[in-house]
Amino acid sequence: MIFVQAIAWILDGGHWVGRAGAGNPAILQRLGETLGISVISVAIAVVIAVPLGVLIGHTGRGRLVAILASNVARALPTLGLLSILLLLIGINAVPIAIVLVLLGIPPMLAGAYAGVEAVNRDTIDAARAVGMTEWQIVVRVELPLAASLLVGGFRATVLQVIATTTVASAFAFGGFGIYLINGLAQNDFVQMLAGAILVTVLCLLIDGALAVVQRLVAPRAFPAARRIRLRRRRAAGHSGPRPSRGRGPSRKVCSHEEDLQRRDRGHRRDGGDRPDARRVRQLEEPERRRIGWR
């Protein structure tokens, strides 16, 4: 069976070490390549997207432009763009990183501005009214309360980037995608399947780890509250499915636009003036429940 063969291929210790070439897949080296370019690309995407997203979420301005730009970035044909950049810049890691950054920005951006926007307007209004500066509001109120959605966006970005590195393998770049390319060329389907499994497992491991992080940052705001809620739920004999926690953003990132546009109508910022919080809260409640925010 090919699946078993692929697993055996992966478990073969000799396939992990050494330099790539002459029949040695050098899984560790490929893992390093994949992670290396992913870390750099994700880091750049985060540095660009988080401040921008927080700014958009905080001011309520520029959301449309951001959505538009994100859609354009998502719609770009990865392979085509990569080819053009490789021709323009040369065959090295730079064009690959550029493409990965472009693809990594939208989910991070969406997570950041959705997270900040989802913070209760009354809370922010009160923070301002007692004399917090805008910067203090961002750092001490909005970011902690948006943490879960931020990590959600980060999760989506990481997965997007790692998945896309396989495409880059078509162009003189290593990474796990090389097994798909070589396997196809050599009719070596075991190697191909092994490559696919490796990428998938890597993604699942990282996603799982980030899911844990996401859970940790969210309830920190209400640690005991969460316990009490659970207790109440149990006391009430609630055995139905719990509202899902922490899955929202990474799943839903691609269709955040509707939510945001919906929220748009109830959202008003007039300098320090009173936002129409009651209406926003109504709109946000189901949204917040959906993302398991509290």
């Binding site: 809370t123 009160a126 301002r128 001490r140």
Partner: peptide, 21 residues
């Protein structure tokens, strides 16, 4: 300056406006 002004004035609102975290 608004921030300084507000720090010297107590503000109490309907839904308490406490920081949930």
């Amino acid at each position: 300056e608004p921030v300084q002004l507000r720090r010297g004035i107590g503000y109490i609102m309907q839904n308490s406006g406490l920081l949930p975290h």
